[in-house]
Computed example of a mutant assay.
Amino acid sequence: MFSLIKKISNRLLRKCINQKLRARLKNHQMSVISSNCNGALMLHDLGEQFRSPFVNLYLAPADFIKYLQNPTFYHTQILQFEQTEQPYPVATLADIRLHFMHYHSEQDAREKWQQRSARINWDNLFIIMTDRDGFTEADLQAFDALPYTHKVVFVHKPYPEIKSAVYIRGFEQQSQVGALYEYSGWLGKKYYDQFDYVSWFNQKS
C-alpha cells in the first residue's frame, strides 16, 4: 500500500512538473541523440516529437562514441539484424551494435530507425550519454573531446576536469548511474531533473 501511494503521488505531481517544463521550452526542433532511453524520456516529458532514431534502444559506450565520430557514414549503412539470445532485436550498423530493447520485431525496429533518421535536425543536435553499460575513463575522455556544442555525460561521481560531465547525486555507492528516468523521491522528481535540460535545450545557437 505504501509503495502504491508513493507511485500515485509521483505520477500526479509529475503531470504538474511536465506542464511547467513544457511552458519553459522554446526550442521545439531539436534532435536528441542519446546512448540509452534518457533522451527519449525527456522528450516524452516535454511532449516533443522524436527527431532521432535513438529511441527505445541502447549502445555500448564505445559504439556510441564511434557513431558520434562519424554519424554521416553510419547513416549510409544498412541495419543487419542478428540472431541472439536477447528477447529483443539486435542489429549491426557497419561495426557498431544497436540493442532495440523496447521493440517487438525487426520490422518495427527497422521502420522506426528509418523514419526517425530522416527527421534528424543536424543543425540542432543535443547529445546525451551516461557512465554505464561498461563505460570507462577512456570513454569519458573520448566523449569530452567530441566536437559537439551541446553534449552531456551523466556521471555517478564528480569529474571537475571534464567539461561535459554532469554529476547526478544518488549513485555514489555504485559503479555507475542507475535508471535516471526513475523517481528519486516523493515529489515527482526524476534523477535526471537534477540537470536543467530545458534550459540546455533552449541554448540552441
Rank of each mutant, 00 (worst) to 15 (best):
Y74G: 05
T72L: 13
K190L: 09
D123R: 13
L46I: 03
A142T: 08
K6P: 01
P158L: 13
H75Y: 13
T84I: 04
G178R: 04
E85L: 11
S117H: 06
Y191N: 06
F195S: 02
A142I: 06
Q194I: 07
I120G: 02
Y103W: 06
L4K: 14
M42R: 09
R11P: 00
M30K: 03
L41P: 01
W186K: 13
N27E: 01
K15P: 00
I65Q: 02
E182I: 02
Q173V: 09
K163Y: 09
R169D: 12
V166S: 00
E161K: 15
V32Y: 02
A145E: 12
Q19G: 12
Y183C: 02
T76A: 14
G188F: 04
W113A: 08
S34D: 02
K157V: 07
I96H: 05
N121W: 05
D45Q: 12
I5A: 14
M1L: 14
M129I: 09
I127H: 04
I128L: 14
Q174R: 15
F64L: 03
Q114P: 03
Q203N: 13
Q114W: 08
D95N: 13
K66F: 09
Q194K: 10
N124G: 06
S184H: 02
P53H: 03
I127Q: 03
F135I: 07
F171W: 08
L13Y: 05
Q141T: 15
E182N: 15
N36A: 08
R11W: 13
I168P: 00
I128R: 00
R97I: 10
V166P: 02
M30A: 12
F143S: 04
D133H: 05
N10M: 04
S164K: 07
E48T: 01
F143Q: 06
D123W: 06
L68Y: 00
W113N: 05
D196Y: 06
R132P: 02
N124V: 05
Q49M: 10
Y192E: 01
G39W: 00
A118C: 07
K163Q: 14
N38K: 09
P61Y: 04
V152R: 13
M30N: 07
A145N: 12
C16F: 15
D123T: 14
F54E: 00
F143C: 06
A94E: 10
S164F: 00
L79D: 07
R51T: 07
G170Y: 04
N56F: 10
L25N: 01
A165P: 04
K20A: 08
Y67G: 01
A23D: 06
Y197V: 05
D123E: 14
Q115F: 11
Q80L: 14
D133I: 03
S9C: 10
L41V: 08
Y159V: 08
V152F: 07
Y58R: 01
S52A: 10
T72G: 10
N38H: 11
F126A: 01
N56G: 09
I8W: 15
C16R: 15
F143Y: 11
I127C: 03
Q19F: 09
R110Q: 13
P158H: 09
